[in-house]
Amino acid sequence: MLTPSTAPPFPFREGALFLIDKPQGWTSFDVVNKLRWKIRKHLGLKKFKVGHAGTLDPMATGLLNLCVGQWTKELKQLEGLDKRYTGTIKLGATTPSFDAETEEDAFFPTEHLTLDMLRETALRFTGDIEQVPPMYSAVKVDGQPLYKRARRGEHIEVQPRPVTVHEFALDNFTGTSVDFAISCSKGTYIRTLANDLAEAAGSGGYLTALRRTAVGPYNIEDAWQLDDLLEVIDQL
Rank of each mutant, 00 (worst) to 15 (best):
A7P: 00
T188V: 11
Q144Y: 02
I89M: 09
H112A: 11
N219R: 15
D105Q: 03
G44M: 09
K140S: 01
Q70W: 03
G15Q: 07
W37D: 11
G205L: 11
G175F: 02
P9V: 10
V139Q: 06
M59Q: 13
K46H: 13
P9C: 05
L78E: 04
L229K: 09
K186T: 04
Y206P: 02
G80A: 13
T164Y: 06
G204M: 04
H166Q: 15
D179F: 05
P109I: 12
A100N: 04
L75I: 15
V232Q: 07
F29R: 12
T55R: 02
D57F: 08
T114I: 05
T72Y: 11
G92T: 04
H52P: 02
H52A: 01
S177Y: 05
Q235N: 14
H42S: 12
R149V: 12
T174E: 12
P109N: 08
P8M: 09
G15P: 12
F98K: 10
H52N: 02
E154C: 06
F173A: 03
L43P: 08
K90T: 13
K76C: 01
M59E: 02
V232H: 00
E154K: 00
T174W: 09
R40C: 14
L193P: 10
E231D: 14
D82W: 06
R151Y: 10
S137V: 13
Q70E: 14
S28M: 09
E74L: 11
T164F: 11
Q70S: 14
A16V: 03
H52I: 02
Y85N: 12
I129H: 06
A209L: 03
A16L: 12
K49F: 01
F10T: 02
Q131R: 11
L64E: 06
A7N: 09
E231T: 15
T61P: 03
L123S: 14
T126K: 13
G25N: 04
V215M: 06
A53C: 12
I190N: 01
R13H: 13
T55F: 07
A200M: 11
D196G: 09
N33Q: 14
T95Q: 08
H155C: 01
D227V: 12
